[in-house]
Amino acid sequence: MNWIQHNWALLLPLVLGACGVWLMMPGARSIRPLGGLACLGALVLGFQLVAGSRDVSGSMFLVFASATLISAVLMITSRNPVYAALWFAVVTLGVCGLFLLQSAPFLAAATIIVYAGAIIVTFLFVIMLAQQAGTSSYDTSSRQPFCASVTAFTLLGLLLITFQSAAAQQTVDGARATEVAAANKALDVQMKVETLDIHKSSRPLPSEELGQMRGLGRSLFTDYLFAVEIGGTLLLIASIGAIALAPRRAQGTL
């Protein structure tokens, strides 16, 4: 009970969010406006948890994060798979904005090209090929929405508690490190050199910024060259497999 009183700021948005998603899920017991209000409340309360900065990047983070989360909820609760795919495109755009804020411009561009340009278009093709008669019966009901919401939000709570305790540990470690740093500076420098040597080319040079394409390419083609080869092979095999799995024209089109 003491723990609940201590952590109510974490628990309240989780409970609200679980109830909201449960109410918004398609099914017999769905009350969509009420669920949407609960989800919005959970979002606002959840943003109180994090340390938001009041500058431009902080407000851009708020815009991108709320766009991402709102359209994620709308995606998993929408009754029409075409709308679900379009909301997923909005989720992708929001995630790309967050990538930009985390200094990953190349990844933002690549994700937009791969997801919004290729994957969602292919999904839309398949939906329109397979489901021409609008919403069907299996889209208007969901399987065990209450249990799934409770499970997923319990997982979310555990993740957040882990992140919180890790952040607390980090501040404690940071304070202790400044005390100890003077004592064993030589040892520390030696250890740092050793850890740097493992993946040396993944660390940006002093003249580079984090996430610059030059540094990314150097890391990709030195430290991770073998993985790049395997990734290329995987793409080749997946395309062969997709062609082999898809129904033949001789078997009749859809």
Binding site: F47, L49, T151, F163
Partner: peptide, 24 residues
Amino acid sequence: GSIQPTLLVSAALFALGAIGFLTR
């Protein structure tokens, strides 16, 4: 300690995707 804000968003995306995966 306060959570890094982007980690909150990523954990929430993961949980919401899990709900969709289980129920739809």
